[in-house]
Amino acid sequence: MRTIIFRFTAPYLTSLMVLFSVFVLLRGHNEPGGGFIGGLIAASAFAIYGIACGVAPVRRALYFHPLAISACGLFFAVIAGLLSVFTGQGFMTGLWAFPAILGGDVGLSTPLLFDIGVYLVVVGSITSIALALEERESD
């Protein structure tokens, strides 16, 4: 798959897909989207980059090992659940804050943190599987 057209377009395609995945992640609370589907889009972006330019550049570009990204997501998800402990409500109760930035209608919440956690878990695990499969093929 190392054609010149594919190799030329892959970086643009990847960056667009990662951007779109973040968009899908953030709109997910009230509209279709969310961490899981966003994570899948981002993971397929990295997979495309891996197919076009080889696995080593993807690993270099990601900097962190995919499994570490996954673990970080799990960490965020648990922390999102634990935050409600400090307010004395049940585990994983959603907490919302509307800070006075951007007109005060941007909701920061523990469900958002949880969703980011899901996003990272999905990105990490699917990318790790995809890169392992691609590596085998190019050897």
Binding site: L67, A68, S70, A71, L74, V78
Partner: peptide, 8 residues
């Protein structure tokens, strides 16, 4: 588990 995986 998550912290140890990050410290792999």
């Amino acid at each position: 588990g998550a912290v140890l995986l990050m410290l792999r």
